[in-house]
């Protein structure tokens, strides 16, 4: 009991806030591991070849508009019709594409601190440094929006084992696709880093019609 309270206090100090706010992901197994859900007013990191699935899931849970910040150099582009198909609201999304990561981070600090949208999605090519992450965390800490840093890994050169558990993000996820059909998608969620518990691994099924989540299996069991 004592240990639990102590950890709460440390996280509260780190996040710079007293009351904890969170949104449930909608699957009790995952929510339990996160002690209720994803923290608001905090930064989360998502990587892996299917990171877009997870960000899409979160965008659907956390309504209230989103900012999509990305560097304009890569070939990859946000595709609104695809998002509409999975229950996202592209009309609520405002995109900022800049050639330079430094400018993009400046925009990110502004947007996070302004606290007017539910979700701020920052897409970067290289992992952010500790200082940059910490600055983002300070910008977001007294708001009730959710900060997401994604790093696409479509090239297939990353693996969950290489993702370190350090850094100032409160959770870090590694996502891959297991199976897919027109009706449902199975993805593997690997919670590499979890400030509120221990790392876990699940295989989750998303129903494309209702957007419901079903637990398929807990890996390692």
């Amino acid at each position: 009991m004592r240990y639990e309270t102590l950890r709460e206090q440390i996280i509260a100090l780190e996040l710079g806030r007293r009351e904890r706010q969170f949104i449930p992901i909608g699957l009790s197994a995952i929510d339990d591991a996160l002690q209720g859900g994803l923290d608001l007013g905090a930064m989360h990191e998502v990587t892996g070849p299917a990171a877009v699935f997870f960000t899409q899931m979160i965008l659907r849970q956390k309504r209230g508009g989103a900012f999509w910040l990305a560097t304009s150099s890569p070939n990859e582009e946000y595709y609104p019709p695809g998002m509409a198909q999975y229950g996202g609201q592209p009309e609520e999304v405002i995109s900022v594409c800049l050639p330079d990561t430094k400018d993009l981070l400046k925009v990110a600090y502004e947007v996070l601190a302004a606290n007017v949208v539910g979700c701020v999605l920052l897409e970067v090519q290289k992992p952010l440094t500790q200082t940059q992450m910490r600055k983002l965390q300070i910008a977001v800490q007294n708001t009730d929006s959710l900060g997401l840093v994604t790093r696409g890994a479509h090239t297939g050169t990353t693996s969950p084992e290489r993702e370190s558990a350090c850094g100032s993000a409160i959770t870090r996820w590694y996502v891959t696709v297991v199976d897919w059909s027109h009706e449902k998608t199975q993805i593997e969620l690997y919670l590499v880093k979890n400030r509120r518990g221990s790392p876990c691994r699940w295989i989750v099924e998303i129903d494309h019609a209702t957007y419901d989540l079903h637990l398929v299996s807990v890996s390692g069991e």
């Binding site: 877009v52 699935f53 899409q56 070939n75 990859e76 582009e77 946000y78 595709y79 609104p80 019709p81 695809g82 998002m83 509409a84 198909q85 999975y86 609201q89 592209p90 009309e91 696409g152 027109h182």
Partner: peptide, 16 residues
């Protein structure tokens, strides 16, 4: 405007 779902299954990211 509200977005309509596309006819076929479409990706979440498109390559320019």
């Amino acid at each position: 405007e509200e977005w309509q779902s596309p006819s076929g299954t479409r990706p979440l990211r498109i390559l320019k």
